[in-house]
Design a protein around this nucleic acid. Sequence first.
DNA 1: CTGAGGATAGTCT
DNA 2: GACTATCCTCAGA
Length: 210
Amino acid sequence: MARPVILHRDFYSRDTPIVARELLGKWLYSEIGGQLTAGVIVETEAYLAEEDPACHAAKGRTPGNAAMFEEPGWAYVYPIHSRCCFNVVTEAAGVGAAVLIRAIEPKLGLSLMRQRRAARRGTETSSRELCSGPAKLCEALGIGRDFNQHDLTKGKTLWLGEPFNGQDPGEHVPLEIRVTSRIGVTSAKDLPLRFVWAGHPSASGPRCLR
DNA sequence: CTGAGGATAGTCT
DNA sequence: GACTATCCTCAGA
């Protein structure tokens, strides 16, 4: 297929909150075994290298978080509660900052997404619930730990880019962005580092935070 | 519809 | 052994 524009290294090589904000409206693609799935990013969270105890890199580099210290534009996939969450590394190599992708609106390959989700759940899932959470979208797109340290700027198997061919980018830019504290973190509760496409049905979290 | 609580496993100390 | 950037089920309204 003809690739839509892929996000390059310089997109990621900026301050993490800026990257998190500008990621809203971009598309996340996975092409695994020749099967394409994709969706629009509607919710992100920034995790900072400095003064952010909630960041996995806060206590320094360990084998588990090593990906966060790699090149911007690389993937950091970590396991939690027997699921996975997907981050993109930002700023610069050695810094230890990233953006967590919390929710997408499913656009391409819905039936495969449903299949992958149902494999775990055993029940049918509505399209708005399909990718409305960091671990849900990983399941739906087939993102596992094998994508840790994957280079997202190559446009192969897993990457971020502009809207799919034929889709008007203008329709995929949020009219309003809501900024809140991050969901589920136990430290640094007050930092306004969560970015949501305001009112989007595919966002996660309690209704009052969408 | 909403909010609370429990299940669950990988990682670090 | 204690954490956890989660998800799902089940009450209750």
